[in-house]
């Protein structure tokens, strides 16, 4: 396989635009089609880049593309991934992988059965700061990990994200999975217990939670806590953050993934902003997906990785219901 033909199914999740740019930078990739029933979402890019458009994703899957990128609303991930697998297409699926454990298991099984790869889009693993921290942990720079405190604070994404029938959950689902994947990756262990609090406090009119705090305990004894809230106000200088404080027996690593930014004060913007200048994590992640497919290697972040992290968020909602920690 010298050239990889990639299609996109749905631009409901805005990350699709950034992933598209990432693929376009790779010389051995052809963007062979974009499917989205809501044409207005993709009209601009299909015209600008002269990409074939499909109103029905099934027509795209009938073409000779090698892989698809799925950035639909969360509730459609399973249907689309399984259809792609049956059509023999590799899949890169936006996070969270699914909204129930059983559907995520079905997605993984379908991809296995049809011998295609399933990658969960966790671009935070491609953050240069995170990679550096992971290497430091693996070298033993801080001894053994004891605990991790993370934040993945953000802004209310609005749209279908706040419609539970399309998103399957609020901030706790949306923002647990990224850093939970990092915690799994760093600790090389599985979560055994979850305690979470979620509420709707920043915008009381929302139908989903916008406030989340989730504690996890791993099988190897490491414990973690993560703030998942959509808590950044409009006046905040940036959209949110991805941070980790990793406490080890011999030291501490602090990761502030988007700290590589300039402070910009512009009357045109009307507020001070943090202008990020670090590496583009989406580009790195997309390249890792393409490289794995071309080399015939396992994708770096699998469907199982996506399941493990989403499962923690789902257990968080169970804990909220129970008012106590729950076992996984």
């Amino acid at each position: 396989m010298t050239t990889l033909k990639v299609g996109f199914i749905s631009f409901a999740h805005g990350h699709a635009f950034s992933y598209l740019e990432g693929f376009r930078k790779l010389p051995h990739v052809v963007i062979a089609g974009i499917a989205d029933a809501e044409k207005h979402r993709v009209e601009d890019v299909v015209q600008r880049y002269n990409i074939p458009y499909y109103a029905d994703y099934r027509d795209l899957l009938r073409t000779d593309i090698d892989a698809v990128v799925i950035c639909s609303e969360n509730v459609h991930h399973a249907e689309l991934t399984i259809a792609a697998a049956k059509a023999g297409k590799h899949v890169m699926c936006e996070k969270p992988l699914g909204i129930s454990v059983s559907e995520m298991e079905a997605m993984i099984a379908a991809c296995e059965e049809h011998h295609v790869q399933l990658m969960t889009a966790f671009p935070c693993r491609s953050l240069t700061a995170v990679v550096e921290a992971k290497e430091a942990v693996d070298r033993g720079d801080i001894g053994e990990i004891i605990a991790i405190k993370g934040t993945n604070r953000g802004s209310n994404p609005g749209g279908w994200f706040v419609d539970p029938a399309l998103s399957g959950g609020g901030a706790l689902l949306d923002h647990t999975v990224h850093v939970m994947d990092l915690m799994h990756w760093f600790t090389r262990s599985q979560v055994s217990e979850v305690y979470a609090y979620a509420a709707t406090l920043f915008n009381e009119e929302l139908q989903v939670d916008d406030t989340g705090m989730i504690h996890v305990t791993f099988e190897n004894g490491v414990f973690g806590v993560l703030d998942t809230s959509w808590s950044r106000p409009k006046s905040f200088p940036t959209w949110g953050d991805v941070t980790m404080e990793i406490i080890g027996t011999k030291g501490v690593i602090s990761v502030d993934s988007f700290a590589q930014s300039n402070e910009l004060f512009s009357d045109e913007v009307g507020k001070g902003t943090w202008d990020y200048w670090g590496d583009n994590m989406d580009d790195v992640m997309v390249r890792s997906f393409v490289d794995a497919l071309i080399e015939g290697e396992t994708v770096p972040i699998t469907g199982e990785d996506g399941l493990r992290s989403a499962q923690v968020a789902l257990a968080g909602y169970q804990s909220l219901e129970a008012g106590q920690p729950v076992q996984l």
């Binding site: 405190k149 609090y197 509420a199 406030t211 504690h215 305990t217 414990f223 806590v225 406490i247």
Partner: peptide, 24 residues
């Protein structure tokens, strides 16, 4: 959740408040 050994002692504590707020 807390950890104590000879050299290191630390804890993460989550408080839920009567007014619905949460603190870590």
């Amino acid at each position: 959740k807390s950890h104590t050994d000879q050299d290191l002692e630390f804890a993460f504590v989550t408080l839920q408040f009567e007014n619905g707020a949460v603190a870590n």
